[in-house]
Simulated scan of single mutants.
Amino acid sequence: MPGCWAPICPSWGVDNRSCAVRAIPGEPSAHRLEYRLPGADANPYLALAGAIGSGILGVETGAALPSSIAGDASVEMCRPSARLPQNLSEATSRFAQSAAASDIFGERFVETFSCSRRWEWEAVQHRVTDFERRRYFEII
């Protein structure tokens, strides 16, 4: 959600917590990047492999770095077409169709992992949540 300090679009900025990548300046030997895209529930090995692989792919292809964002990234640059996926289904579809993901992880992994995420999304869709029980119990 915009305004909650979690990235909602691909962006970077210097010491900007609303961006997906936060450049943190320090002493010359202490500069670092904070990669803020993965959630707390992400597999750390896959998240790190994706971050490193996408960096290498960007260098190899000579991808241009967009301008840094100084204000709230969700306000400054996010248009609906540039937003990050909003749920597991959308993320899975984008991952399955991504040439970059195939380059980084290999086609076989992308196909297998996407299949497992589609199954997980479908399994969740057939569950009644506690919220739904509390909200709609009185109506029945």
Rank of each mutant, 00 (worst) to 15 (best):
W5M: 04
P7S: 03
P7N: 05
P7H: 05
P7G: 04
P10C: 05
V14N: 02
D15K: 12
R17L: 06
C19R: 11
V21M: 14
E27Q: 12
R36N: 10
R36Q: 09
L37Y: 14
A42G: 02
A42L: 02
P44C: 02
L46K: 09
A47K: 11
G50A: 15
G50Q: 12
G50K: 12
A51P: 07
A51C: 15
I52V: 15
G53V: 07
G58L: 01
V59N: 01
E60V: 00
G62P: 04
G62Y: 05
P66N: 04
P66H: 03
S68L: 13
I69G: 02
D72N: 11
A82H: 09
A82V: 01
L84P: 00
L84H: 03
N87V: 03
N87A: 06
L88D: 03
L88F: 10
S89I: 11
S89W: 10
E90L: 14
A91Y: 12
S93K: 15
S98T: 05
A100P: 03
A101S: 11
S102D: 01
I104H: 01
F109C: 01
F109H: 09
F113G: 03
R117I: 01
R118F: 12
R118S: 09
W119F: 00
W121D: 15
E122S: 11
A123M: 08
R127W: 08
E138H: 13
I140D: 05
I140S: 05
